[in-house]
């Protein structure tokens, strides 16, 4: 089974690679103009010929190419996912490590904030924040970060708590090494493995949340291509043109499932004893 497992892993990594490639170079190969509407080419089924070439995945309700939306949506999803996870991990690790290492008031403050955010569904918070503030990429990123950092803070806090008691940390403290240096050199490195695993899982959930927000019409502005918006725009044509919702959704699903599989493997590998 070992062989089958590693073949599976290759496939999964390969698929993620294709997405990254599509996100980086795809937009140069497949042009997409979100405001261009071609009324004569509305709702064409996959494989139809259009003025701009063949619409392999069909066209949507205003004649825009679905394949182009899928490719440009990959860039949007991955960019937002990576930015949110990067911000969340920096903030979360900093707060968690300080809370776990320093203890006292800092710890109580962070732990209570985490309690509040844990109890409340993150997607709901994102809906309220992104929905009420002005629409824009920045607001979506902030809305997803609000609940996203807590996983990182919890993890780094627990690692910091356990590392704090180790002999070499005591030795460093006795030698008069500054707290900031101890944290950076002796505490944070222990986080690397579990942190990569958590970041992977978090990436999947951020991509999903962003799509859900955009699907509800509360996320990215209409001029940014995103899978969530494409899926939503196809909902009213479901009976006549299923491909508008189906293909962006398949793109989203395959990406999230693949990232989830990688994350699950990493989590098991770096599982904390």
């Amino acid at each position: 089974m070992r062989r089958a497992g590693s073949v599976g892993a290759w496939v999964v990594h390969g698929i993620i690679g294709v997405y990254v490639l599509a996100a980086v170079v795809g937009p140069y190969l497949v042009p997409y103009d979100p405001v261009a509407t071609v009324v004569t080419e509305r709702l064409l089924p996959p494989g139809s010929a259009t003025a701009a070439g063949t619409a392999w995945l069909g066209t949507d309700g205003v004649g825009r190419d679905v394949l182009a939306q899928v490719v440009h949506g990959a860039r949007t999803s991955l960019t937002i996912g990576v930015v949110v996870v990067a911000l969340c991990s920096v903030v979360g690790v900093a707060l968690g490590a300080v809370a776990g290492y320093a203890g006292g008031f800092a710890d109580v403050a962070v732990a209570r904030t985490v309690d509040v955010l844990m109890a409340f569904p993150g997607i709901l918070l994102a809906i309220v924040i992104a929905g009420l503030l002005d629409r824009g990429t920045g607001v979506v990123i902030i809305a997803l970060c609000v609940a996203g950092w807590i996983g990182f803070a919890r993890l780094s806090r627990s690692v910091a708590l356990s590392v704090r008691e180790r002999d070499w940390v005591d030795a460093a403290r006795i030698m008069g090494v500054r707290t900031r240096v101890i944290l950076g050199r002796h505490v944070v490195p222990f986080l690397a493995g579990p942190m990569v695993a958590l970041a992977t899982m978090e990436l999947a959930s951020v991509v999903l949340s962003e799509a859900a927000l955009s699907f509800l019409g509360l996320g990215l502005p209409p001029h940014v291509a995103s899978w969530g918006q494409s899926i939503a725009s196809g909902k009213e044509y479901l009976a006549t043109a299923w491909w508008i919702s189906a293909f962006p959704g398949i793109a989203l699903t395959v990406l999230v499932v693949c990232i989830g599989l990688v994350g699950d493997r990493l989590t098991r590998r770096f599982a904390q004893p």
Partner: peptide, 22 residues
């Protein structure tokens, strides 16, 4: 179960509408 946990629910909902309802 790993796959099911990762599915985007709102899209699954739309696909269920497409297949079972329409």
């Amino acid at each position: 179960t790993l796959g099911l946990q990762a599915l985007p629910p709102f899209w699954v909902g739309i696909m269920l509408i497409l297949v079972l309802a329409l």
